[in-house]
Each structure stands twice: as structure tokens, then as C-alpha cells.
Design a protein around this nucleic acid. Structure first.
Length: 170
DNA sequence: TTGCTAACCTAATCACCTC
DNA sequence: GAGGTGATTAGGTTAGCAA
């Protein structure tokens, strides 16, 4: 599936967010939460963020990575997994998680104008640019990151469509 | 140098809103 | 319903850091 084959991938990593180092206590809390549900809802993520004093976006990333590693381990050792897992695939949590989605952010035309202008200058803003943009339009940095992800995706799909068009006409 | 893992990416999909 | 778009997911890559 996803490959980092973008021509922008070098600029994308100019300014990453600095690596978070979770303490043992923080990890214990996260692992416990993961065992309860690998698909926490927005409220749970907020609660965890407060509990371990970090940003909600860090919680989201941690759960993403944890699920990924969990899947890899499951494939390599189907009978015996991570220490963290009681593991029944938690389908019900997944459904519950969806019910507890973050509220949809609706951007004003001026916010969108700012974002689009930034996107045309650089579709892969680093952490500093994202934070600056977030401050400027008054939304969390994580929302700016999501907006750029979606924008890039749809931009590539659109471009691909434009390239395919002449072939279809033939 | 290597293994682990946070940060980040794309692609697909879901969910909600507007027309 | 269709189209647009924000949110979430899986699964892959990149890069920082400890051993």
C-alpha cells in the first residue's frame, strides 16, 4: 500500500516534531489503555493526554504505531502475542471508536485561503510551519497536519486523473 | 551497528454536510 | 443520492536514540 515515493519526501522531513520520550509510567498507562481498547475514541484520547500530560496527537500516533506492531507480531506469532494483548481483535471497540469521533472541524473561507496559499508554497510543511499556520488560523497543529494529508491525497488523485484523461480519449 | 519506536507518509475508507 | 471534505485506519518508510 502506502509508499513514501513522493518527490517531496526530503523536504517533508526537514523539520520533524522532536521525538517524544515516554516515561515508564506513561507507557504503563498507555499499554493499559491499549489493552482495554486499541481503538480509543476522542474522549479517551483526551483523557489519556491529560493523564500523562502530553498532546492528544501524540496519543493518536502512539496507538497507530502500537496497532501496527501488534499486527506484525500477530502475523509472526499467531498463537502468542505481545505481553500487552489479551487480544480478540476488539471489533466492538473499533465500532465504538468510530462513534466517538472527533467533531468535524469546519474551516472558514479565510482559514482555507491561508491553508491553500501555504499548500501551494509547500505541500510538506515541517513542524515549525505547521505550528505557525495553526496559530495563524486558530486550530490545533494536528488539524493542520490532517488538512495537508487530505489535500495532498486529493491533489495526487486529481493529477492522476488529468494524466489519464488523454489516454481514455484515445 | 543494530533494534526499537516516534514521527510521518500514502491510499483507502468512513462519516457528515451541502446542494 | 452525489460530491466535497474532515477524520480515521492500515501499512509502509524515515530517523533519533539507547545498547
Amino acid at each position: 500500500m502506502a509508499k513514501n515515493n513522493s518527490p517531496h519526501k526530503t523536504t517533508a522531513r526537514n523539520h520533524r516534531q522532536s521525538r517524544t520520550k515516554f516515561t515508564e509510567d506513561q507507557l504503563n498507562i498507555l499499554i493499559k489503555a491499549f489493552n482495554q481498547t486499541p481503538y480509543p475514541g476522542d474522549a479517551t484520547k483526551e483523557k489519556l493526554a491529560l493523564e500523562i500530560n502530553t498532546e492528544e496527537s501524540r496519543i493518536q500516533i502512539w496507538f497507530q504505531n502500537r496497532r501496527a506492531r501488534h499486527q506484525v507480531q500477530k502475523r509472526s506469532k499467531p498463537e502468542k502475542h505481545l505481553e500487552a494483548s489479551q487480544d480478540q481483535d476488539h471489533p466492538e471497540e473499533k465500532i465504538h471508536g468510530r462513534a466517538d469521533r472527533r467533531c468535524r472541524t469546519s474551516y472558514t473561507s479565510s482559514q482555507l485561503h491561508t491553508l491553500i496559499t501555504a499548500f501551494t508554497k509547500n505541500p510538506y510543511p515541517g513542524i515549525n510551519s505547521r505550528e505557525q499556520l495553526a496559530k495563524e488560523i486558530g486550530v490545533p497543529e494536528s488539524r493542520v497536519q490532517i488538512w495537508f494529508q487530505n489535500r495532498r491525497s486529493r491533489f495526487y488523485v486529481q493529477k492522476k486523473g488529468e494524466l489519464d484523461e488523454p489516454l481514455e480519449q484515445k
